[in-house]
């Protein structure tokens, strides 16, 4: 158990940081804390796409590279700081496709050097990925893409709860489990710490990540906001729409961030 600011301080500049997108437990609280600590040169990995937290970190100047299958704000439209940074050439974008990112993480999870994946051949994504290769598949003889194992330095996500033993409960968002299994360190913010041990509860254990894979936990109430958290709270569309509007310009983003990231924290609603 550490504080949110300590957790942000533990992420070194230049780290490969994997973040789930807006439908899958992003820690917006940690993204804001990374912006506050002035993180630099982060390489973000969208698992398998990127959303609000990634756009915020790009806007705050924390990001050198984004590997992702897409970056958007959902119904609020294009991610404004991502879009501006691509146009300006201030970040490096490494395009992927969703199942490829899952497969690269699963390779690390299994401890194997690569995973094959069908599809992709004929896409320009492949032409722009010198680290991906096409082989003739054993057994079938088809041409198939091989993807290298990918091991993030840090996995960062937000869960409803952790227990006293350091296990984290994510419910059905099992991509966060794969992500934790595949990353050197998993940093998890949670709404609350509860008594007991999820692994001893048959109902909770299938949705849990064992403490084996969890490096640190910090409590951050409403830590996914403005993104929805499972059935605990909904998507704050008005908040994201205001962000999308203000962050169209660098100055607008700075004004938004001064109020929503850098100002002394208000009591959560």
């Amino acid at each position: 158990m550490i504080t949110l600011e300590e957790m942000a301080a533990s992420v070194p500049d230049g780290a490969l940081v994997a973040l789930p997108p807006d439908n899958s437990l992003p820690s917006v609280a940690l993204a804001k804390a990374l912006a506050r600590r002035g993180a630099k040169g982060l390489r973000l990995l969208g698992v398998p796409v990127s959303g609000f937290a990634t756009d915020l970190l790009i806007g705050a100047g924390c990001v050198a590279e984004v590997q992702t299958s897409a970056c958007s704000l959902g119904e609020a439209g294009f991610a404004p700081r991502f879009t501006a940074a691509v146009k300006a050439g201030t970040i490096r974008v490494v395009d992927a496709t969703c199942p490829a990112i899952h497969a690269m993480l699963q390779a690390t999870e299994k401890g194997v050097p690569f995973m094959p994946l069908r599809g992709i051949i004929g896409s320009d994504i492949l032409a722009n990925r010198p680290d991906w290769t096409v082989i003739e598949a054993p057994f079938t003889g088809e041409r198939i893409v091989c993807l290298p194992a990918l091991e993030p330095d840090v996995a960062a996500f937000h869960a409803p709860m952790a227990d006293e033993a350091g296990n984290v409960w994510i419910g059905r968002r099992r991509e966060c489990a794969t992500l934790a299994h595949a990353s050197r360190r998993a940093l998890v913010t949670v709404e609350r710490i509860v008594p007991g041990n999820f692994l001893e509860d048959e109902r909770l254990a299938p949705g849990a990540i064992s403490a084996t894979y969890v490096s640190a936990i910090a409590v951050a109430a409403r830590g996914a906001h403005p993104v929805a958290l499972l059935d605990e709270y909904g998507f704050d569309a008005a908040y994201v729409a205001e962000y999308a509007r203000m962050a169209r310009t660098e100055a607008g983003f700075a004004e938004w961030a001064a109020r929503e990231v850098f100002a002394p924290r208000r009591e959560a609603a």
Binding site: P48, S69, F78, F82, V86, S123, L126
Partner: peptide, 17 residues
């Protein structure tokens, strides 16, 4: 590449699906 004129969000799972 990767969309220096107009950038769309990205390919999502399309290259596979």
């Amino acid at each position: 590449w990767p969309g220096r004129e107009v950038r769309f969000p990205g390919s999502f799972g399309s290259a596979f699906m």
